[in-house]
Design a protein around this nucleic acid. Structure first.
Lengths: 174, 174
DNA sequence: ACCTGAACACCGTTCAAGT
DNA sequence: ACCTGAACACCGTTCAAGT
């Protein structure tokens, strides 16, 4: 006897996103997601291949949320600050987005605004290389900050602003 | 009846480092390390508090190995290329070093050469901020490369050299 | 003083049985 | 067609018992 589904990819992804937010990637277990979706763990395998696939769905959802948060920004400093504020508000989601566990297509779409801003600064010849410099710096800075890697003290805010200033002038096409 | 230890922190760390190299962080299980150290899993708890502590020891050993690999470099480009070559040769160890799971003291010691080079470029007033810019860029670039995040094609080598050139001129004290 | 087998709680995953 | 309990292999960790 055929039965209508009692859950869905969308519901599973939403449940997973909320669990990631509150309990981190380690807390994102099949059991926890199943309970939050109102179902038992084995049922999830009717909707996702395995835990890696579920983590990928959650990563993509986070990447889209991040992209929406970045969309209004149209200059390098604004974009970098928006990225950092989102990372501070959603540290687990931020780490997951940049861990490479999501779909490459979604990641590429989310990175598009950076390309546009890099083109405006560096010109279209250096667009891609400039975008990679900026993206690498921003993700590196923020992930080190989240990991507590800035142990030497000093002013982390000042280091962020210093880097933005130096990068802006370094990338501006001559 | 007292008994001499059949293993040691050093042996456990060495076994863990080799397992990390070949099987990754996921393969670094208490069971696998115990077998490699010639002992059973419960015995490890006489030497380390728990798996996190063991991972921390392996992270510190990797950070020291990385520091030794970077030590001969005395300019920004050489340092960055040496970091990247080590990361390519030891991807699991590289990720672990920058995951913040090791001891802050060891991480700070390993970062000292970057500070010296940054001081030479930017002057002592901006030394720390300049070092953070460079470190954030390099770790971000390499971790994105290891994660396969450079999906848009283009020349990754060229992007690395472009960034080195732009950063060097951006940091040089005026 | 250290090592061990046995046990516990947990995890991801499979599968026959239910509806 | 989907959901479930039961089971399996694995994991980290504890602990009483051995030497």
């Amino acid at each position: 006897v055929p039965t209508p589904p009692r859950t869905s990819i969308a519901a599973i992804t939403a449940a997973g996103s909320e669990i990631l937010e509150t309990r981190g990637l380690q807390g994102l277990t099949m059991q926890a997601v199943a309970v939050a979706a109102g179902v038992r763990a084995p049922s999830l395998y009717k909707h996702v291949a395995d835990r890696d696939a579920l983590v990928g769905l959650v990563a993509d959802a986070a990447a889209l949320a991040l992209a929406a948060h970045l969309a209004p920004e149209d200059n390098l400093a604004g974009l970098a600050r928006a990225l950092r504020s989102w990372a501070t508000a959603h540290p687990h989601a931020y780490r997951l987005v940049f861990s490479g566990q999501g779909s490459p297509d979604v990641a590429a779409a989310a990175g598009a605004p950076v390309l546009a801003i890099a083109r405006g600064l560096a010109g279209s010849a250096d667009e891609l290389a400039a975008a990679r410099l900026v993206t690498a710096w921003a993700t590196g800075f923020i992930s080190m900050e989240l990991a507590g890697a800035f142990q030497l003290g000093g002013d982390v805010e000042a280091a962020f602003d210093y880097a933005l200033d130096r990068l802006t002038s370094a990338l501006t096409a001559r």
